[in-house]
């Protein structure tokens, strides 16, 4: 192994050894009847293919299009999100915070990896890794720079550290020049990072980013 490493992808064991350790544990748990292999497959499939940031994008696009829905969303996030059928684990108590011309919100979990699963799926590696967890509360301007985002100096930054069982979703600002767009087209502009607060919604016609 070369000595160079990156913190977020480092492994203390070589992958083959880790794979074996995991296989051994699973075989033991299945044999003892502690896990149902079919349930494990459904769990994996649910978060790999069904629940992800497209859910959150639909919610945001709807809030951009319907002022009454936006008011409900900001008043009671989980309840308004459940109108879409998005509900469940790690998302019973979702709070939605709104980005405006004056305020930019950003979400972190410094202590572990709390994240609103029903609307964003499972968190990306960087969200769970030390650089983001350590710096988001101390140097959000620098963090945003890592994501290619520079905010005007008069914008107040609010960092939400998810230390309890509340889960935070950022309602990004609707990009200018999108007045005529359908909700489906608007949803295409809503990136995962814009709902964490480490990014902004895309401009119409711009390329793909997370």
């Amino acid at each position: 192994m070369p000595s160079e490493h990156s913190h977020d992808h480092d492994h203390s064991e070589v992958p083959s050894d880790l794979a074996l350790r995991v296989k051994a544990l699973e075989s033991l748990l299945v044999e003892k009847g502690l896990v149902d292999p079919a349930a494990l497959e459904i769990l994996i499939d649910t978060y790999e293919t069904k629940v992800g940031p497209r859910n959150g994008a639909k919610v945001v696009a709807h809030a951009w299009s319907d002022p009454d829905y936006k008011a409900r969303l900001l008043a009671d996030g989980s309840k308004a999100i459940a109108e879409f059928g998005f509900d469940g684990r790690q998302g019973k108590d979702i709070v939605v915070v709104e980005n405006t011309e004056q305020v930019h919100n950003m979400v972190v979990c410094t202590l572990c990896s709390c994240y609103p699963w029903p609307v964003l799926g499972l968190p990306p590696v960087w969200y769970k890794a030390s650089p983001y967890r350590a710096r988001a509360v101390r140097d959000p301007v620098g963090v945003l720079k890592d994501f290619g985002v520079t905010l005007p100096e008069d914008v107040e930054i609010r960092v939400w550290d998810s230390t309890a069982e509340l889960r935070y979703l950022v309602l990004p600002q609707r990009p200018a020049g999108t007045e005529g767009l359908s909700e489906a087209d608007l949803a295409e502009l809503v990136t995962r990072d814009s709902m964490i607060g480490t990014g902004l919604a895309k401009q119409p016609g711009a390329g793909g980013t997370p």
């Binding site: 509360v137 301007v141 930054i157 960092v159 550290d161």
Partner: peptide
């Protein structure tokens, strides 16, 4: 449980964070 707002300067000192702008950290506390 409450969301509690802490001004950036209260947490990190007047010069060490969010230079030149308003900023705050919100933390959920019991």
């Amino acid at each position: 449980v409450y969301s509690v707002r802490f001004e950036a300067a209260e947490v990190w000192g007047p010069d060490s964070m969010f230079p030149g702008r308003r900023g705050a950290i919100y933390i959920d506390l019991w």
